[in-house]
Simulated assay, not measured.
Amino acid sequence: MGRAQESFGKKENEKKRLKKQKDKLEKREERQANAKKGQSLDDMLAYVDENGNISSTPPDPTKKKEIKTEDIQIGITRREDMEDEDPVRTGSVTFFNESKGYGFIKDAVSQESVFVHVNGLVDRIKENDKVTFEVEMGHKGPSAVRVKLAAV
């Protein structure tokens, strides 16, 4: 009978395993040598200053600000707290490609560019037309819908 066959791959895997085990043991011994045993509680504490940075010194009690719990707001503002703005906006068509069926409208008030698709049109539009529209969130952001030519 012959002895067990050891391939080159098996030998390499065994070498890697032994090296990894040795490295792990060396790291553990290094951590134990550098461990600071018997630290006091004060040495282990960390403080956060008024800017949110971590420091080893406690904050200055003279800089302490009193905040009322009623003033703290967690979350978003309620719907009734927000002012209702007119959903119908006005603007001008800056670009419109009829063959591809999309374009952009520049809002007259906020000067933001809003995407418009041919499916959101009520009237036919072309570049530089004055239009009224409403904004709804589409798949990739705000999109103009119910786009009509503005009465001149």
Results as ranks from 00 to 15, higher is better:
M1G: 15
R3G: 10
Q5F: 10
F8S: 15
N13L: 13
E14Q: 14
E14P: 03
R17I: 07
K19V: 12
Q21V: 09
D23Y: 14
D23M: 15
K24T: 11
L25W: 15
L25K: 15
K27C: 10
K27G: 12
Q32E: 15
A33K: 15
A33H: 13
A35R: 13
K36W: 01
Q39K: 15
D42T: 12
M44T: 15
A46S: 09
D49V: 09
E50G: 10
P58F: 08
P58H: 08
P61F: 05
T62L: 11
T62V: 11
T62R: 13
K63F: 01
I67K: 05
E70W: 02
I72T: 07
Q73P: 02
D81K: 06
M82Y: 12
E85Q: 10
E85H: 09
D86T: 11
P87G: 06
V88D: 04
R89E: 06
R89N: 05
S92I: 06
V93R: 00
N97H: 05
K100F: 03
G101T: 05
F104P: 01
I105S: 02
A108D: 08
V109D: 05
V114L: 04
V114I: 14
V116N: 00
V116S: 00
H117F: 01
N119M: 02
G120I: 00
V122G: 01
D123P: 02
R124C: 04
N128Y: 03
K130A: 05
K130I: 00
T132P: 04
T132S: 10
T132G: 03
F133T: 02
F133Y: 14
E134T: 09
E134Q: 13
M137E: 13
M137R: 11
G138H: 08
G138C: 10
G141T: 08
S143C: 09
V145R: 09
V145Q: 10
V147R: 02
L149G: 06
A150I: 03
